[in-house]
Simulated assay, not measured.
Amino acid sequence: MSEGLGPHRHPRQFIAFTAEMLYLPRGKAIRAKSMRRQSRMRAMASTPTPIENAKLVLTIYKHFRKRSGEVLWAENFQTYVKENSLNQEDVKSGLVYGYENKWFEDGPNGTIKLTADGFKEM
């Protein structure tokens, strides 16, 4: 018997989380990394809808603190996509949906302007 656990307690009766392992009551051990990976894979399995992609583009505008009528350069999108490990195709799909719904419009010198409708959706 382990000291400090009392006469009727066994160490495997608790759920204890450490950085390395997750101990379950049944005595099985699962690596925490494996659980996070499985969670990410489930999230990646579902394909985002065009409106979800457009909301993703709006988060890019929000990140750069843009308001209605302000613009972003293509480089701003590329930088954000790389830094956050996003899928470029999702961003393109979001831009297409946003253009169709008048959330974005062409700005000067190849920029993309956030419209009032787009700002309302943020």
Rank of each mutant, 00 (worst) to 15 (best):
E20Q: 09
M122C: 07
F104H: 02
A19Q: 09
T47Q: 06
L56C: 14
E3L: 08
P11K: 08
A43V: 08
V57G: 01
K82I: 05
S85K: 08
Y23K: 11
S85I: 06
E89L: 10
G98N: 00
A54T: 08
M41K: 14
R31H: 07
Q38D: 14
A116S: 10
H8G: 05
N84H: 04
T47S: 06
I112Q: 06
R12E: 13
L72G: 00
K82Y: 04
H8D: 10
E121L: 03
E89Y: 03
A29S: 13
A32E: 12
R9N: 08
M1T: 15
K92D: 08
G94W: 05
F104W: 05
T115D: 02
R67F: 02
L114E: 04
E121K: 04
D106G: 11
H63C: 14
R65C: 00
K120H: 15
P108D: 07
H8F: 10
T79F: 03
R9I: 02
M41L: 15
R36I: 07
L58Y: 04
H63A: 15
R37G: 03
E3C: 00
G6A: 01
P48I: 08
L95D: 00
Y99W: 00
A16H: 12
M35R: 02
K66W: 01
K66C: 00
I15D: 06
V57N: 02
M44C: 10
H10A: 02
Q38K: 14
Y23W: 08
R67V: 01
P7L: 09
D106A: 12
G27C: 11
F64T: 02
E83G: 01
Q38A: 15
A45E: 15
A32P: 10
W103I: 02
H10T: 08
E105K: 03
R42A: 09
I51K: 10
S39K: 10
I60K: 02
G27E: 09
G94D: 04
E105R: 03
Q38C: 10
R12N: 13
F77I: 04
E52F: 09
W103Y: 08
K102E: 13
F104M: 03
R37P: 04
E83A: 04
G110R: 01
D106E: 13
R42I: 11
A29L: 14
I30E: 10
K66L: 02
H8Y: 09
D106L: 08
K113M: 07
K66Y: 01
Q38F: 13
K92P: 01
S68E: 12
T111S: 07
E105I: 00
K55T: 14
K120E: 14
H8N: 12
V81K: 03
